[in-house]
Simulated scan of single mutants.
Amino acid sequence: MTRDRHAADDAATWVHRLDQPAMDTAAGAAFDRWMDADARHRDDFADMQALWHSDALAEALRAHAVATPPRTVAAPLVRRFRPARYAMAACAALVAIGLATPALLTTTYRAGHGAGRSVTLADGSRVDLSGDAELRVRLLPWRRDATLAQGEAFFDIHHEADRPFTVHSGSTDVRVLGTAFNVDRQADDRITVQVYRGAVSLDSAHGEQVVLRMGQGARVVADRLAAKPAAFDLTQHRAPDWRSGWFEASDVPMGVLVDKVRRYADQPIRFADPALADRRVSGRFRISDPDRVLGAIRAAYGAEVRRNGEEIVITSNEAAHD
């Protein structure tokens, strides 16, 4: 068996043993040694323990029973099925039908086009998602992980000193214990973070790390910290601009601005020339009013904006008049 299968089998066995009314000292010591033998055992055990008391396991077993010839689930065999063997069979059922425990423990939240969404996580944390955002959350007994796959999210994290919360976005990690902060995934290699309460540790793929405190923000571009932490005015910005339909751009690619407008536009938007998406823009834009932003792009940045019935196309003035 592969390492994953071995680990799942062992974790299932330990979950079953720890569920018994009593366990002797020797078994407890053996469990401690198993947990210490590999850092991944903690996650394996947490995954299986969470499944053990969830509907997901019952569903997996039902699916396995349907796919198994009737003779293998005959009554006499069920009566002889001891708890320990049930533990291993349950684990085998999960593997047999292709269910990975991390996937079962991960909840995905998506916000529709043009509208945000607020969700309350099982630990009491609250997350506000921008339009067209996707967030995947995995809560374990000793850590909490979230992946911002696209869009923007404002996190208000419930404080748990022994269970840190980490947000992964692209190759950037934001680690917190209890705070309120915003993560904007502007591209796979372009992330901005602003802290509204508490503090976070921002880690880039190149090993750079910076601590951001309340009223500070930073940007990671091309997997590197783009600059030192910069202060923003909390009296003027009590919440992220996107929650009120705005975006404040400071020397960012036009493509970042247009991506935010896409959350609200009634048609797809594309650049006829990809190089135009790299043109730098600055200003404060009401992204919830796409026509207004597209008009500003036309007026200030030498671009033409055309609707062809199916989509909105942004071209340079030179290309438009060729």
Rank of each mutant, 00 (worst) to 15 (best):
K260N: 10
A37C: 06
D9C: 14
Y86R: 15
L294P: 00
R85H: 11
R307M: 11
V211G: 06
L57T: 06
S171E: 14
E318N: 05
W34T: 05
A303W: 00
R71V: 14
R5C: 07
R144T: 05
F285C: 07
G98H: 05
A299F: 11
R238P: 14
R79F: 09
R126T: 15
A58V: 13
T107E: 12
D32N: 08
A26H: 08
A275N: 08
R33Q: 13
I287W: 03
V195G: 01
T25A: 15
A84H: 12
R262M: 08
A89M: 12
V193I: 13
D203F: 06
T172E: 01
V95A: 14
E318P: 00
T120K: 07
L51P: 03
E59P: 00
V281W: 01
V95Y: 09
A272M: 02
T108C: 11
A58K: 11
T107Q: 11
Y109S: 08
L202S: 02
N182Y: 05
A111G: 08
H64F: 15
A60K: 03
K228Q: 12
A103W: 05
Q194T: 14
S288F: 08
R117G: 03
N182C: 13
Y196L: 05
I269G: 01
W14Q: 08
H113K: 11
V193M: 08
G255E: 02
E310F: 04
G114T: 05
Y301L: 10
V220W: 00
A133L: 02
C91I: 03
A11C: 11
R292F: 11
G302Q: 03
M88W: 04
A299K: 11
R33I: 11
L135M: 10
T13P: 00
F165V: 07
D184H: 13
G217N: 05
V293L: 01
D132T: 07
A299M: 10
H41M: 14
S244V: 10
D188S: 09
D223W: 03
L94D: 01
V221K: 02
V73C: 09
D291A: 11
V95S: 13
M35R: 15
D10H: 09
V258S: 00
Q216E: 15
V261H: 00
E311K: 07
D36L: 14
D251K: 04
A90N: 12
P141K: 04
H158M: 09
S250M: 08
A149T: 13
F271A: 03
A103T: 12
E310Q: 09
L61P: 00
A26V: 12
R243F: 03
S54C: 05
R17A: 14
R17P: 02
Q236E: 11
D289H: 11
R5V: 15
H237D: 03
L94F: 02
L61N: 05
H321M: 08
A319S: 09
A8W: 10
